[in-house]
Simulated assay, not measured.
Amino acid sequence: MFSLFKPRSVLVGSDLDFQIETYKYLMKYFGGESFYTKTKLVLPTDEFFPDSVSSEDEIASKTFHQVKKHSGMCLWPCQLIAQEPDPNRHLGGTLLIRNAPSLPRCTYSLGEEGAEITFNPNLLRNPVMMVALFANRLAFYLTQELTESPPGGWSNLGYANDITAVFLGFGIFSVNSVFNFQQFSDGEIIGWMSERNGCLSDVELLFALAIFCKLKGINPVVAASHIKPALRKIFYNCIKQIDANEDFLSEIESVEFVGDQYHKHPRFS
Rank of each mutant, 00 (worst) to 15 (best):
C74K: 07
G259P: 10
L43Q: 01
I252H: 13
I81T: 14
D57N: 11
T37H: 00
P77I: 05
H265K: 14
F5W: 04
N245H: 14
C238A: 12
C213M: 10
K24L: 06
G13V: 03
K24Q: 11
K240M: 09
R196A: 13
P151W: 06
N99V: 07
T94K: 13
G111A: 05
T22P: 02
I20F: 00
N99F: 13
I227H: 01
K233L: 06
P266Q: 09
G152E: 08
Q66H: 05
K214A: 05
A60Y: 01
H70C: 00
S9M: 09
T63F: 03
I163S: 03
L124K: 12
V128M: 10
T143W: 03
V178G: 02
C106K: 07
A210S: 14
P77Y: 02
Y236L: 12
A224L: 03
G31M: 00
D260K: 15
T143R: 08
C213Q: 01
V128Y: 14
K216E: 02
L95D: 15
G259E: 13
G152W: 10
F173V: 10
A244V: 05
G171Q: 05
K233T: 12
E47Q: 09
D247V: 09
F64Q: 04
A210M: 07
F30P: 01
R8V: 07
E58L: 08
Y236W: 13
N237T: 08
L11T: 03
G13T: 01
V203K: 07
F18K: 04
G217T: 04
F134V: 13
F18L: 04
S155K: 15
D15A: 09
F181R: 10
A82W: 05
